[in-house]
Amino acid sequence: MSIIFDHVAFKYNPGTTYENTALDDINLKIDDGEFIGIIGHTGSGKSTLIQHMNGLEKATSGTIYYNGQDIYDSDFDMASLRTEVGMVFQYPENQLFGTTVYEDVCFGPKNQGLDGKEISLRAFEALRAVHLPEELCDVSPFELSGGQKRKAAIAGVIAMKPSVLILDEPTAGLDPAGRDEILNLIKELHEKNGVTIILVSHSMEDVANYVDRIVCIDKGHIKYDGTPREVFKNYKELEEIGLSAPQVTYLMHDLKRAGFHVDTDCITIEEARNEILRCFGI
């Protein structure tokens, strides 16, 4: 079970004067059960990349395999790919439309052609997974708070039981506690249900705290692909492409320059705390 990108390139408006290469020679293998963070500055091609993963954009050249099948084969079932690979867009609450939260969450499974009982089961399961209280089921989604709306929208995608969940900046615009709630529920989906997670994020701190692997995109290329520790070692290069390392990583570098013998690879507060305490013999 995997998604494989084999020499994938994508051009907008190919053959015209507006031709614009968004992805160039992307080679990527995403295994089952991974938790991947995708980082890249605005316009780097990360949204285009994820839109290839469930067939919303079609590569200009190259091949994409889902579980060993070429998704561009004429007999490939694209509709099932789109339920297998669920996509939570930026500001997904803008796509809520049901008269009640429950109805909205049911829309996906209904479209999958499931029977009534299964649809309800899935809807309630999804609402539980995002920790929305059951009494909100019959409320209009437009009466929910910002964070609750986002959870409802995510539940709508989860209800289709995707094996892979792609989230494009799921925490944008939320307050810090709201951010933690969303990220923790994503983590839960990964750990409890074994869903493969692909998280697009502008927050290096969030990426450092949650993901196992970072894919960094720059100008349509994969610039780095590795564990957060490996990728954030290149903090200077990351800055050149409009990104950064988590704040604590900078602090560790500052400390090293100030003569402390610390490991500069720390990327989370906990790691930094332990490393500094070690330095002081505590």
Binding site: H41, T42, S244
Partner: peptide, 12 residues
Amino acid sequence: DEPTAMLDPDGR
């Protein structure tokens, strides 16, 4: 009013 909510680190 939250001018940086939708931006990358550089933009922020």
